[in-house]
Computed example of a mutant assay.
Amino acid sequence: MAETNHRRVTSADVAQLAGVSRATVSYVMNDTPKQTISADTRTRVLDAAARLGYAPSAAARTLRTGRSDVVLCLLPDWPIGPEVGSMLGNLSTALARQGLTLVVHPGNREDRPMFEIWKAITPAAVIAYADFSPGEIEAMRAAGVALVVTPLGRGSRDQRELAVPQQLIGRQQAGHLISAGHTRIGYAYPDDERLRIFAEPRLAGVRDECRASQVGGPAIETVALEAEQAASAVRRWHATGVTAVCAYNDEVALAVLAGARRAGLVALAVIGVDDIPAARLAEPALTTVTTDQAAVAAYLSATVVAAIHGRPAPAVPTAELVHLVRRESA
């Protein structure tokens, strides 16, 4: 049986098929400015590249231009739910429109040191949801890597901060319940420690709104995705006069609704976050707060491009990001 040839197609192969020099192939494939190449020659090169399945080497392009087109996103050890998946999909599309390629690495520092990951790729920029040590930051800067830290509302003055406004989510949840007449608010906290980075600022937003409106709460209960455990939390809320609950997200909110049915306290108002498909199928249908992930992605992309080119980061478009979806549960 004949051996399959897996040799990578090179610019020399394209040049031979098109009847031009390798330099001409490079000029055409990289759209090099200030080169007088006829339309016919350009067409022959592009046709030959398409026939051979040729794609320019990213490593070679980096060496030639001095800049990678890869943006490395380092995710912590998060559960990849619908919202994170939507954010990454939208961010990939937004960066592609800027000629950049998104590479995502989920995990944590125990799996593999962060410096090993970015050194292996040598990206144009790193998006990270965790703080780096001063030594790591200095090493990245020395390598010409733009660092974009997204600590969800935290961060120091020398870091470019992509603060997706989690506190606004909590404030909008509580504000909706308070405007409906509820004066004692509960908060359903997730039982997954990995979600703390989101849960804490959302809870802080609920606290701020309760304080500003001078209502009681939030009374905090950790709620697992299990009906009987949630029913116990609902009974404790009821005993302290809580009539409405802000849940960390829609899944936790659905657990609260299930717990309320089991406890026989279906009058409890509940509001979630994310607007997952199951939210509209719940009984009652779940009122929720959603984030415009396309707007988040556009903002992240613009901030990355600004970081790469040493320009000031754009303002956070807070008014465009968070929206209330009214349904029957609250």
Rank of each mutant, 00 (worst) to 15 (best):
A94Q: 01
Y187H: 04
T150L: 06
D191W: 06
T150D: 14
L95V: 09
H182M: 09
E110L: 08
Q172E: 13
W118R: 04
M87F: 15
E161I: 14
A139T: 03
Y189D: 13
L152T: 02
Q173M: 14
A120N: 09
Q98T: 05
G135E: 12
R157L: 05
V149A: 14
A125F: 09
S86Y: 03
L147A: 14
G107E: 06
A142Q: 08
Q98S: 14
I127K: 08
Q172I: 13
R97K: 10
I117T: 12
G107P: 00
V148A: 09
N108H: 13
R154S: 14
M87V: 09
R112D: 00
E161N: 15
R196A: 14
P165H: 11
I121M: 05
E193Q: 10
F115E: 15
G107R: 07
G181S: 13
T93D: 10
G155E: 01
G175V: 00
A139Q: 12
Q98V: 07
G135D: 13
F198S: 13
P106A: 02
V164L: 15
I137Q: 12
P165W: 04
G175T: 01
A180Q: 11
V104K: 04
D158Q: 05
T93W: 00
G175K: 03
S133V: 06
D192P: 05
P165A: 14
S92E: 15
A128D: 02
D192G: 05
S133A: 10
N108D: 11
H182D: 12
I178E: 11
Q159I: 00
Q172P: 02
T183P: 00
N90Y: 08
L95N: 01
V104N: 08
V126I: 14
S179W: 04
A96K: 07
A124N: 09
G175C: 07
A124Y: 01
G175F: 07
T93R: 14
N108Q: 11
E161Q: 15
F132Q: 00
V126K: 04
R109T: 10
M87E: 13
D192Y: 07
L168Q: 15
T122Q: 15
L152W: 11
L88Y: 00
E116V: 08
R196C: 01
P151N: 11
A120G: 09
H105L: 05
R97P: 02
A146F: 00
I121W: 02
Q159E: 13
F115I: 09
Y187W: 07
G186D: 10
G135Y: 10
A130Y: 11
I127H: 01
R194H: 10
M87D: 06
L91W: 04
E136P: 01
D191M: 06
A125R: 03
G175L: 06
Q159W: 03
L177G: 01
A124R: 00
